[in-house]
Design a protein around this nucleic acid. Sequence first.
DNA 1: ACAAAAAATTTCCTATAGTATATTTTTTGT
DNA 2: ACAAAAAATATACTATAGGAAATTTTTTGT
Lengths: 205, 205
Amino acid sequence: MNVDLENLQNHRRQFNADSNKSDEIGPRLHQLRKGRGWTLQDASKASGISASAFSKIERGELSPTISTIQRIARGFEMDVLSLLSDPDEQPTLLGRRSVTRVNEGKPHLSGNCDNQLLCADLKNKRMTPIRTRVVARDVEEYDVWPKTDAEIYMTVLSGTVVVHSKIYEPLELHEGDSMYYDASAEHVWTREGPEEAIVLWVLTS
Amino acid sequence: MNVDLENLQNHRRQFNADSNKSDEIGPRLHQLRKGRGWTLQDASKASGISASAFSKIERGELSPTISTIQRIARGFEMDVLSLLSDPDEQPTLLGRRSVTRVNEGKPHLSGNCDNQLLCADLKNKRMTPIRTRVVARDVEEYDVWPKTDAEIYMTVLSGTVVVHSKIYEPLELHEGDSMYYDASAEHVWTREGPEEAIVLWVLTS
DNA sequence: ACAAAAAATTTCCTATAGTATATTTTTTGT
DNA sequence: ACAAAAAATATACTATAGGAAATTTTTTGT
């Protein structure tokens, strides 16, 4: 477990930073209102913002205050964030897909583990699936205990894995066992027993 | 593959809708500025907003316009959305974790598949891991082809699965093969051959 | 403890957001 | 094609956002 978590996360963050580039609420509001088949007066009634102001905002003749935006959001029964984030600008796979055959993942070696990034050719995924052969037999073999704000789902494909955490007792997982945890608490994996330990895990940001 | 996708999605959406309830930019900006050790003049220089205005905004004496917020976001080198979304309010697992032992998932039967929700006791996860025994042998057995805006990662644990899609040719996946796809294009699974087919999949919103 | 410096707030002013009403444009029915 | 109705925009005004400079508060050094 040492595919460079930091890097994976930064990559995603970088991307998010410049998404929603044309942060124009005008067209966004117009699209939303028309999408519901509302007139300016409907929108006005729902939000408490005058129709004229609404019209000016939609056409970019006026930059609404945040409190106005909040009132509009309430009118549309949505939260400010989703009001501001245009789904059309959201990075999406749009029907794309990627297949990785057995043992054909993209190698990504790191200190204590032998990782294979799965479906790595698809960019801007919301999850990162990885197949890892756990090498470490002892916690001492880890110099750093990785930590991010991601969530991790892992399942043991073969062998026995021990999950060590700074806030829990060590936990043994056998073939077929699953675990879901928050990577903001440091966790590392070691293997146990004679068989080699293979873990399939997926992480999100 | 027929764990009620709609329901899973709606659940998550519902949750997102009322996140960020105290949408007060004032404290948020104060926290951000102080976090960087900036004075009001620093913030003013970076954003182009006068220190006095900045002060008033922080104390809620003034509701900034969206264009002001955009300028502030540029000053802080972040996008408007992450400026507005207080990470402290973000739903997080905060070190929580959940384990599911082999064959101990929460059953979730549906038309053509035998699903087990894994780690189902943890709420507000960003991913939903599911273990499914694919029953259908023919596409005809599906009355509806599920479709959402989620992304799906799946891997075949045993047997042979054929992935049918409205926009791709059918694709055979064998034990150990992985696939990542966008569920906005309809996909259904059937099994092939004598062995029973088990799929492990994870979906995100 | 005091003065000097730096940071935050207040004041007063101008620019612009937002309202009510009038006008123009578009849609609908005959 | 025309009139009536409905929707969108323009106008004139009020309320408030935002800037420059003055004032107060907090911090720092001696």
